[in-house]
Design a protein around this nucleic acid. Structure first.
Lengths: 221, 221
DNA sequence: ATTATCTATAGATCTATAGATAATGC
DNA sequence: ATTATCTATAGATCTATAGATAATGC
């Protein structure tokens, strides 16, 4: 039964991956170690040779999934880029993202839980939230009043609130309306800068990013 | 030991009140019936003469706290009122609200949990969310493009996202910056209509509402 | 007699550990 | 010999119920 060290490392990663998905689906409190291990193809006993405690697992799993998103963001433009922003918003506030929290943004899925979590978890989230605000501020480009950073915080808050609302609401049309409204206003606002842009141009940009987002999703699967 | 029927009704209310506070503090999953009853000055056994199940309690407790907020909103202006909005936002995104989820907005505290909850709970929340969007749209007054309702959805999303972020983040300055940024942009945006308003007027409204909130809190204790 | 609450406990579930088993790796 | 995983289980905790107790209310 005992596999090699290499196999153990793979097992470790598999547990983390399953945990990260389950955490985003069920919330931090409802993850059970027996269920987790079963889904990873193992039994309870093995768990504690991989993690000192359940809390340790939660921190490590969230850290690893945040790390993945971080690496992805590092590929994003380092210069102000108004083209990137609409695609990001469109992807974030898509029905696809709403319906698949397990593979979606870990901050959107668990920001409420983290508010009641241990210090290590909150610190992980704080770091990533700060990073995301900076990224958005960078993307927002030319606006100077209101300051980019302030606008980034508003946009980020609205995105998180909208995805949470859209998941809580049991009425599909309302859920979709929430996503569409925030999407439209955020994108419009961002393109209201010095160089004016027609709705047509914005749509073209949007579509391009939609395609890009779809491609990315397909790569994942 | 058996008290009167009137006493039972009081006990019922007490259990609900404690539950509603604990739910907002700990999240839906972490409420234990033994703890709840102890805090209400009772023991576990009595619980099931008041509620058929834990789930029933959760629905009833959230329903009662949402109902309270609903009655309060019914006192709010039925006509477009730009004076009311800044006070509302200021109160919602205050450090006081951030630090006291137990007595704060049940949607802000639990919107994430509700996304993973049973249908009855989600329906309760859906009704109240719809109501709040309508209220905000009413308050936003004169803007016609973008449509008031769309703006209301953006503002509401941003408020919920900002309060959740401010509670998740372990760094005080960042937490306060998030609240202040969203507050300022939402209020500025709303007063960008025809009649311009000085900061002074907004402050006056705010103070009035703060007093009202304080009085209400004192009544509760 | 009815019933509001209490004590006690059944049964489920969850975290964590102990000891067994079987493959790795010196 | 070491160790990755398994089986089994201790101990805690949680929901829900059964039966006892003592006050209400016809």
């Amino acid at each position: 039964m005992a596999h090699s060290q290499a196999a153990k490392a793979q097992t470790h990663e598999r547990i983390l991956r399953v945990a990260a998905e389950r955490l985003r689906q069920t919330g931090i409190d409802r993850l059970s170690i027996a269920d987790l291990m079963k889904e990873a193809g193992l039994t309870v006993g093995g768990f504690y040779k991989h993690f000192r405690s359940r809390d340790d697992l939660v921190v490590e799993a969230l850290g690893s999934v945040l790390g993945g998103w971080e690496r992805e963001l590092d590929e994003s433009p380092t210069e102000p880029d108004e083209h990137y922003f609409p695609g990001l918003v469109e992807r974030y506030l898509s029905e696809d993202h709403r319906d698949n929290p397990g593979t979606g943004c870990p901050i959107g899925a668990l920001v409420g839980d983290v508010g009641r979590s241990s210090e290590p978890t909150r610190e992980l989230y704080t770091k990533q939230i700060r990073r995301n605000i900076r990224l958005l501020a960078r993307l927002l480009g030319d606006s100077s009043s209101p300051p980019r950073r302030q606008q980034a915080i508003l946009a980020y808050s609205a995105m998180l609130g909208a995805i949470a609302l859209s998941r809580a609401v049991s009425d599909q049309p309302l859920s979709t309306e929430i996503l569409a409204s925030v999407k439209e206003l955020l994108v419009k606002d961002a393109s209201r800068g010095p160089q004016k842009k027609t709705a047509k141009t914005a749509d073209a940009v949007l579509t391009r990013h939609r395609r890009r987002a779809t491609r990315r999703n397909q790569e994942k699967t």
